[in-house]
Amino acid sequence: MTKTHQEISTANQKEGADAAESLAHYTGAPVPPPARTDGPWLIVFWRSDIAKKWLMALSGLALIGFVIAHMIGNLKLFIGKADINEYAEWLRTLGHPVLPDQVVLWIMRVGLLAAVVVHISAAASLTITNRKARPVRYQSRRDYAAANFASRTMRWTGIIVLLFIIYHLLDLTWGVGNSSWRSGEVYDNIITSFQRWPVAIFYIIANMALAFHIFHGFSSMFASLGWSNPRLSVLRKNGAIGIAAIILIGNVSMPLLVVTGVYP
């Protein structure tokens, strides 16, 4: 039923009066508390979102370095049993004879753990900040112009990679869930683990997530660290694709070739 002119007009007058009332009481956006500047320097630094992104970029760079070194070491799987076992033993005795065995290994492990903790806590804190910054979401569909799949799924690829790291440590460092696991027998442990297809599929999916994560993370790092020199833009674009592709191919090749029976 259509409303008469008079009905619409009355309704509008009432609505107009309500709006005028609420506008009269409007005192601006809710004012957030000012940035706290008390406390030790590092804590004050950490409170800033830009500083968190800077630390996230640095820890991310360290983790990319680890992922590449880890991949190169593990690709010795394809050279032979003796080679990869020798590499694993070398890691344990790194720094010999200056330092006792495993000291360098543990320094690297602690460094990695610190990088992971910084990276994840910064991400979690920034995610909360960003959610709070838009309490009322868009009610219509957004049309993104620049954001890509990798940049929009960082949170999820990151979570997949974290879960994978936990499983990966359980599987190959502590030998949980693999009855044929034996300490020091790196080659046999990897092969017996990857021959189980659900495990191989999880490794493959996790490394695909890692490649997407690194693709956006690597190029994003340049902005977070403030490297905007145009000479770096080639490295930024090609480096992101190149490193993501190398890590994807290198890391996926191991479970893929083992589970399909191509290797050994």
């Binding site: 957030p32 940035a35 900040t129 709070k132 954001a147 890509n148 977070s224």
Partner: peptide, 14 residues
Amino acid sequence: NEMERWFGSCTNHG
């Protein structure tokens, strides 16, 4: 500091 009071943080989407 003033910006960070009110707004979110950058994730370099562009």
